[in-house]
Computed example of a mutant assay.
Amino acid sequence: MFADVFVILYVAHHLSDFPLQTDHQAAHKADPTFAGWRANLIHAGTHIATTAVLLLVGALVLGLHPTVAGTAAALAWIGVSHSVIDRRSIVRWWMEHTGQSGYLKHGGALTVDQAAHIGLGLLPAALALAALH
């Protein structure tokens, strides 16, 4: 079940982060304003909704049987972790303190951001879904 749900989460993540994210959300989700938090939370909500729909489709098509508790835990983790990572301060801090400041200056934040979403967001969510089925 782990591989199945990880692929589903991965696809949902990329759909939510690229074709389903508006220009406004991308430009303002890290702003320290009400509008920035609003953009961030709507974007995180898109991740939760997209993931929920694809998990339902996956459950129906693949015969997966995730529990309500596992699904709720995974969706909550995806929403919270995505929101926190997209505030950008963690990614910036990481890059500035691990010898990647040059990479940061040349646009590397997107790559580190995506790695954080996969390793800190999707992987634990997939593990929770698999462990709590």
Results as ranks from 00 to 15, higher is better:
residue 50 T to I: 10
residue 16 S to G: 15
residue 120 L to S: 06
residue 53 V to G: 11
residue 79 G to S: 10
residue 56 L to T: 01
residue 2 F to K: 06
residue 128 A to D: 04
residue 17 D to L: 05
residue 62 L to K: 11
residue 46 T to N: 08
residue 64 L to H: 09
residue 121 G to P: 05
residue 4 D to E: 11
residue 95 M to A: 08
residue 94 W to S: 05
residue 132 L to H: 12
residue 71 T to K: 08
residue 115 A to R: 10
residue 20 L to A: 15
residue 129 L to F: 10
residue 50 T to A: 14
residue 64 L to P: 03
residue 23 D to I: 05
residue 114 Q to S: 05
residue 110 L to V: 06
residue 74 A to M: 07
residue 101 S to L: 05
residue 126 A to T: 09
residue 102 G to W: 00
residue 68 V to T: 13
residue 24 H to T: 09
residue 67 T to V: 02
residue 74 A to G: 09
residue 17 D to Y: 14
residue 84 V to N: 12
residue 50 T to N: 11
residue 13 H to Q: 03
residue 2 F to R: 05
residue 131 A to I: 03
residue 123 L to R: 08
residue 58 G to W: 02
residue 11 V to D: 10
residue 92 R to N: 01
residue 10 Y to S: 04
residue 15 L to A: 14
residue 119 G to K: 03
residue 69 A to G: 05
residue 18 F to T: 11
residue 51 T to N: 10
residue 37 W to P: 00
residue 40 N to L: 13
residue 83 S to F: 14
residue 72 A to S: 11
residue 81 S to Q: 11
residue 25 Q to Y: 13
residue 10 Y to N: 01
residue 17 D to C: 07
residue 125 A to E: 03
residue 65 H to D: 10
residue 4 D to M: 05
residue 91 V to D: 04
residue 112 V to T: 09
residue 24 H to A: 12
residue 126 A to C: 07
residue 58 G to P: 03
residue 124 P to C: 02
residue 1 M to Y: 10
residue 53 V to Q: 13
residue 120 L to G: 13
residue 111 T to S: 09
residue 50 T to P: 07
residue 106 H to N: 12
residue 6 F to Y: 14
residue 42 I to A: 03
residue 115 A to I: 12
residue 21 Q to F: 13
residue 14 H to G: 08
residue 106 H to M: 04
residue 14 H to P: 04
residue 87 R to W: 14
residue 54 L to E: 02
residue 92 R to H: 04
residue 40 N to I: 06
residue 112 V to F: 01
residue 13 H to A: 02
residue 75 L to P: 00
residue 59 A to H: 06
residue 19 P to Q: 14
residue 71 T to A: 09
residue 88 R to N: 01
residue 84 V to S: 08
residue 91 V to P: 01
residue 4 D to I: 02
residue 68 V to C: 03
residue 98 T to P: 06
residue 48 I to L: 04
residue 49 A to M: 07
residue 83 S to D: 10
residue 63 G to K: 11
residue 111 T to Q: 12
residue 118 I to N: 00
residue 58 G to H: 01
residue 99 G to P: 03
residue 69 A to L: 03
residue 40 N to K: 09
residue 59 A to R: 08
residue 80 V to D: 14
residue 68 V to Q: 10
residue 94 W to Y: 15
residue 35 A to G: 06
residue 95 M to L: 06
residue 89 S to T: 13
residue 55 L to W: 03
residue 12 A to Q: 13
residue 79 G to A: 09
residue 124 P to W: 02
residue 106 H to T: 13
residue 126 A to L: 07
residue 133 H to R: 08
residue 41 L to A: 12
residue 116 A to C: 11
